[in-house]
């Protein structure tokens, strides 16, 4: 049951892999697909137009920013860290795009790299300080949460910047196609992230560091560069999330993404990523993102009241994690 999860590879795997690798690797997703299916079915029954292609298109339009941020978050959680700053870094990056394009008159192609750089810079700072000063990343990124939000207010003078049509194409469905460039990019990042994690030395080291950093050190591997680059990737992806959100809303909002870090962490945990490090899957995180977004959209579509929305969202997160834990224990018992 647990073959898919990185870091719990069983020696038998290589033998089985050839015969039933596809089947085996899809088993961990069955539970999540089932929960997703139930959610979609319920919303379909409760509303007039939930089961339609436009809903699907709109979901595809809404998920890219949370998706890329959750990919970064998964990597950070795997090395037993946490990045609380992603929401603020997204707002900061978005502010950079807005300020450069509206006040500075920069073209999009020049503003985007600057914005990604800002995101990666924040991430690097998180990584360097927490790794070299041995401060828990919880504290360092909590500091960055404040710093980046302050920076976003400073850059925009606390004003929403309306950019308009020059950024919209990134988040707008392409003609003839169902989805936006942002969606394709997010899917590509999920695939690359999963390959990075499961098929590269880099990925194996991340899992090793998260499982037992001391053992990694004993083995003569310097873990610092790996840990730092994970935070830098998370910052970079938060910057990308900023570009995506700015393009979807045609505006840069310094108040954007407050609390998004919690949605990203929830998506990771729903997907079975361990907060203690060493275990996680990016594909599963993607299912977590889908679940959270389907809930959000579905609850809005049936017109649920605000208290109901919160209670149901919270309950579904707990139930999803509970199911994952049960599945894991059952898997252990039958191995």
């Amino acid at each position: 049951m647990k073959h898919q999860d990185v870091g719990e590879t069983s020696p038998k795997r290589s033998v089985r892999q050839t015969t039933s690798s596809l089947l085996a690797s899809s088993i961990p997703y069955v539970g999540m697909v089932a929960v997703l299916g139930v959610l979609v079915l319920i919303f379909g029954l409760m509303s007039r137009n939930f089961l339609s292609l436009t809903t699907l298109a709109s979901l595809a339009n809404q998920i890219p920013d949370l998706t890329v941020i959750s990919v970064g978050m998964t990597l950070v959680l795997i090395v037993a860290g946490i990045d609380l700053s992603v929401g603020s870094v997204l707002a900061l990056s978005s502010a950079v795009v807005g300020a450069l394009m509206v006040d500075g008159g920069w073209p999009l192609w020049a503003a985007v790299p600057a914005c990604l750089l800002a995101g990666a810079g924040c991430g690097c700072f998180n990584g360097v300080v927490s790794v070299y000063a041995r401060i828990p990343s919880f504290i360092v990124t909590l500091g960055m949460l404040e710093i980046a939000r302050g920076g976003a207010y400073l850059i925009t003078d606390s004003r929403t910047k309306y950019i308009g049509s020059s950024v919209e194409w990134i988040g707008t469905p392409m003609p003839g196609l169902f989805v936006s460039p942002a969606f394709l990019l997010a899917v590509a990042i999920v695939v690359c992230g999963q390959l990075l994690l499961t098929r590269t030395v880099f990925g194996r080291y991340l899992v090793a560091i998260g499982t037992n950093a001391e053992a990694v050190r004993m083995a003569g591997i310097r873990s610092e560069p790996y840990a730092i680059s994970v935070f830098a990737i998370s910052g970079l992806l938060a910057g990308l999330g900023g570009v995506i959100q700015t393009s979807r809303l045609s505006s840069a909002d310094p108040n954007a993404a407050v609390g998004l870090e919690l949605a990203a962490i929830a998506a990771c945990v729903i997907g079975g990523t361990s907060l203690a490090g060493g275990r996680g899957s990016i594909i599963s995180t993607f299912f977590g993102v889908l679940m959270i977004t389907v809930l959000q959209t579905g609850l809005a579509q049936v017109g649920a009241s605000d208290p109901t929305k919160r209670i149901i969202t919270g309950s579904v997160i707990v139930v999803a994690v509970l199911l994952d834990a049960l599945r894991r224990n059952w898997g252990k018992a039958h191995d």
Partner: peptide, 23 residues
């Protein structure tokens, strides 16, 4: 036909308005 709180926020309003327009 529909009236929901988007908590004064742009991104929340975006999600909710999309849902309203579909429904």
């Amino acid at each position: 036909v529909d009236s929901q709180s988007a908590q004064w926020e742009m991104s929340k309003a975006n999600t909710i308005a999309s849902s309203m327009l579909r429904e």
